[in-house]
Design a binder for these strands. Structure first.
Length: 619
DNA sequence: GTTCCCGACGCCCTCTGCTGGCACATA
DNA sequence: ATATGTGCCAGCAGAGGGCGTCGGGAAC
């Protein structure tokens, strides 16, 4: 491609000022190339650029993209093309370096949001009638290397991001001027499909000049060389018929079919009626007022639908149920959901199918893992808006669902429903474990029960009392219960056996003669601490009151409970005190008492349940 | 220009399942 | 007194169903 040098009307210049900021990545590039940052100065007559600079400075609060410019050998400068986010009255830009000599007013209605993937886009507005778009693949270039991927003059309001269109920036060594040369390439639909090009290829001149002396800046100037053609363009703010003068015949034919373009969005239409109707969507005017509630609407159709909500008019009634709808489309959808179960939208990965395309789209995120809705307060991101909204309650503490019985509040309706069902309802469903007698209130807890107790485990679980091993925890627990009343501690010297190890320890002392408990007052030794305590209280404690068991019939007193039992009848019947007790408890016919009652102890004594086992409470 | 039809978006709902704190029983 | 096991329970997120509303293409 051949370069073309043209003279440029200075008043058409859009000036880009070198920026002091240098991104680390760009800096690395510069350092690798052995370059140093040059000190350039603002040139004369840059008042216009100064305004732009100030605006940029205000806007460039984030982003660090830099463009390395070389005006002389070994001298490099940074033009920062930073992401500039405009306020709502401006057109929003993302990942876009933006410059305009007109300032804020020049942007409105002309600059468009664009997506260039990895590219940075520079949009320049010229009086809201044309735009220049430059996309830059890398963060830093020398001017010799700078390859501008796109440069389009936009007629109307939309543009295409094209990777094929290339312009090469070359540096005129003698003057430091940069010239953009027209490259080959054609427009193509954008990745988002939102932009259509109606472009007119033009030449631009980019000049890089040193700034004023003492300044760190250089000025990059981009000039439109085809300014005369702007005269015929329609004013912005109104839809207009596009000129189909593209060199692309295919695109020309396509555009010729859709000559009505909205100036405020990407909408195009082949019919003026559709276009006019669309333009109402941008208007705040709502001329159609409901006579019942004075609410205003943009269109007659919206008003009619609204009035139907007052009157309850739902002309489309379902033939299979009582539901009725305002529109036929709602009825069709309802019938698919409830009656025909027709699901035209089928997932290509699984068997899922849905009535609506949006549901399939939502479902697909469960395969892709896409989570477009990011929480602003934590790292959580959800796959749809409702889950994010529901999640936000975890930050706000909001509990919108209240139990109508106990007024407990809940974050989710389902949680409250379970609460009401299980706390305030009769005939609560229970879940019987299929492997044991356990009944569990919640299905999810039954699952936990099955997982913990009835799941086969590869590692062996040993019984703590014997050598048996199990692979299921429930079987192990059941087995260990069989050891519960077992006298598994057996004396190695005699036939004595007991349930508890501590009992065996005491018993062994009868064989070894060991008496580890010594009275501090008389040095007498005992095998058991309890015996020592009894001895100490009886012989060395002045406050000790001995336990006395008194017969309720004859008031006779005994120092030991089995003497009291024998007195009650055991002696008459013969046998040991324990067998006497068994007879008493069973209400033996020979016993004077119909049923066992706990003895009346004076001082420390018994505590017992009338029907349960005996407990020795005096310790 | 109006109306019908359809797709898209958004909202709300239910069902489901996992998690961890808690209370209680038991060892 | 302490540790451990287990069911109960609320919190929370995943997935999907259902419907109201809006905007645009096309027919009328």
């Amino acid at each position: 491609m051949a370069g073309t040098e043209l003279s440029v009307p200075s008043e058409q210049f859009t000036k880009i000022k070198a920026w002091e900021l240098m991104p680390p990545k760009a800096l690395e590039v510069v350092q690798e190339e052995g370059a140093c940052r040059g000190r350039e100065h603002l040139g004369p007559g840059n008042v216009e650029a100064q305004d732009t600079y100030g605006l940029l400075e205000a806007k460039m609060l984030e982003g660090e993209r830099g463009l390395v410019l070389t005006t002389e050998e070994s001298e490099k400068h940074i033009v920062t093309l930073q992401t500039v986010h405009f306020s709502s009255e401006d057109v929003q830009l993302q990942d876009v370096g933006w410059l305009t000599p007109q300032g804020r007013e020049g942007v409105q209605g002309a600059v468009r949001q664009a997506s260039g993937g990895e590219q940075s886009l520079l949009w320049l507005d010229e009086g809201s009638q044309q735009c220049v778009a430059i996309s830059i693949q890398e963060e830093a270039y020398t001017l010799q290397e700078l390859e501008v991927m796109q440069l389009h003059v936009l007629e109307g309001s939309v543009a295409v991001a094209s990777e094929d269109t290339k312009f090469v920036v070359s540096l005129a060594e003698s003057t430091g001027w940069v010239k953009l040369e027209k490259g080959q390439g054609e427009d193509q639909p954008s990745a988002e499909g939102g932009f259509r090009a109606q472009t007119q290829e033009q030449f631009f001149l980019v000049e890089a000049k040193p700034g004023d002396e003492g300044s760190d800046e250089i000025v990059l100037t981009i000039s439109n060389l085809n300014v005369g053609e702007q005269e015929d363009r329609p004013a912005s703010g109104q839809g207009h018929v596009e000129k189909a003068n593209s060199t692309d015949n295919q695109k020309k034919a396509k555009e010729a079919k859709r000559p009505f373009c909205c100036d405020s969005c990407v909408f195009t239409s082949s019919r003026i009626s559709s276009f006019n109707r669309h333009m109402k969507t941008h208007s705040t005017e709502k001329p159609h007022v409901c006579h019942l509630c004075l609410k205003a609407f943009r269109t007659v159709t919206l008003l009619r639908n609204h009035i139907n909500t007052h009157t309850g008019t739902r002309p489309y009634k379902c033939g299979d149920c009582v539901m009725a709808f305002v529109t036929s489309g709602e009825l069709v959808r309802h019938r698919r959901y409830k009656h025909t179960h027709e699901k035209p939208f089928k997932c290509s990965i699984c068997k899922y199918a849905s009535v609506e395309a949006s549901k399939l789209k939502r479902h697909t995120r469960s395969h892709t893992g896409e989570r477009p809705f990011q929480c602003s307060l934590c790292s959580y991101a959800s796959k749809d808006t409702y889950k994010l909204k529901r999640h936000m309650r975890t930050h706000s503490g909001e509990k919108p669902y209240e139990c109508h019985v106990c007024h407990t509040r809940f974050t989710q309706s389902g949680t409250m429903k379970i609460h009401v069902l299980q706390k305030h309802s009769k005939n609560v469903p229970k879940y019987q474990c299929p492997h044991c007698a356990t009944i569990i209130a919640r299905k999810s807890d039954l699952r936990v029960h099955l997982l913990n107790l009835h799941t086969y485990k590869a590692t062996e679980m040993k019984c703590r009392y014997c050598t048996a091993v199990f692979h299921e925890r429930y079987a192990l627990v059941q087995h260990q219960k069989t050891h519960k009343n077992e006298k598994r501690f057996k004396c190695e010297y005699c036939s004595y056996a007991c349930k508890q190890e501590r009992h065996m320890t005491v018993h062994i002392r009868t064989h070894t003669g060991e008496k580890p408990f010594t009275c501090v007052s008389c040095n007498k030794c005992f095998r058991q601490k309890q015996l020592l305590n009894v001895h100490f209280r009886k012989y060395h404690d002045a406050d000790f009151i001995p336990t006395v068991y008194q017969c309720p019939k004859c008031s006779k007193s005994f120092s030991r409970w089995f003497q009291w039992v024998r007195n009650l009848g055991g002696a008459r019947l013969g046998g040991s005190a324990s067998s006497s007790l068994r007879r008493l408890r069973s209400g033996c016919s020979g016993c004077p008492l119909p049923r066992w009652r706990p003895p009346m102890a004076i001082g420390k004594g018994f505590s017992s349940s009338p029907c349960g086992p005996f407990h020795w409470a005096a310790q």
